[in-house]
């Protein structure tokens, strides 16, 4: 299952990239999944799990104070779970754990925002010094790192349990498993088209992409 210390540190850094520091999108499921796969020796499985989770998250935009799923640490946990359970069951488990952990991450982000509100000085209640701003800012960044690491550590515990309890229980073939997961991803994909203008406005472009690449993949 890899070095837990490295994975927990990676989880902390991925959490930082999501909002607090940089936002270079290393925390997107596609990237976080592949990097975790690399660390654990299976980048292809990491890319597969990360790519599928990415499709589920495609219609979600982090607008204002909206509830949005976190990509980094949950995908890391999902890939660890996928590698812990061999075969098609591992792929299903990895995607599901990634999705469920993203909800847990959303709760932790909500709590972090509340904590940030208390830590950050309120300019209406008196003069805010520059030292206090810097200290409060760095404390909030540190808390976010801790949140990501804790979320990852919890996920590693689950993956350890899954590696002993779940192997051999998944009865479906790999193609049927992927079919179910892609079918599920089609629903958020439909919502994505709607939020970007709907089928009347964008249907032709969607059909051109789908038809063109379908024919190309069959012919080539």
């Amino acid at each position: 299952m890899g070095d837990p210390f490295v994975l927990i540190l990676l989880g902390g850094f991925l959490a930082l990239d999501d909002t607090s520091v940089g936002q270079f999108m290393v925390s997107r499921p596609l990237v976080a999944g592949t990097i975790t796969g690399w660390v654990l020796g299976d980048p292809f499985l990491g890319l597969l799990v990360g790519g599928l989770i990415e499709l589920y998250f495609i219609p979600v935009f982090p607008v204002g104070g909206s509830d949005f799923p976190e990509g980094g640490p949950p995908t890391l946990v999902g890939v660890v779970a996928a590698i812990a359970v061999p075969g098609a069951g591992g792929i299903a488990l990895g995607v599901v754990v990634g999705l469920l952990w993203s909800r847990l991450a959303a709760v932790s982000i909500h709590l972090l925002r509340k904590a940030n509100g208390r830590i950050m000085p309120d300019p209406t209640r008196g003069v805010v010094s520059s030292k206090r701003i810097v200290r409060a800012h760095l404390t909030c960044v540190g808390l976010d790192f801790f949140r990501g690491s804790a979320l990852t550590a919890l996920g590693l515990g689950f993956a350890r349990w899954a590696s002993s309890a779940l192997p051999g229980l998944w009865p479906l073939s790999p193609s049927l498993t992927l079919g179910i997961l892609i079918l599920g991803a089609a629903i958020p994909a439909g919502a994505f088209v709607r939020s970007l203008g709907g089928w009347r406005k964008r249907g032709v472009l969607f059909a051109a992409g789908a038809g063109g690449f379908l024919i190309a993949s069959v012919l080539l």
Partner: peptide
């Protein structure tokens, strides 16, 4: 699935997540 998603709108990702998780849990 695409049509269903476009009917239900942006919030559909949330219950899709629970539905897929529940389905996979039931299969296990």
């Amino acid at each position: 699935g695409l049509i269903l998603g476009s009917r239900l709108g942006q919030g559909s990702w949330r219950w899709t997540l629970w539905a897929v998780s529940g389905l996979c849990g039931a299969i296990f």
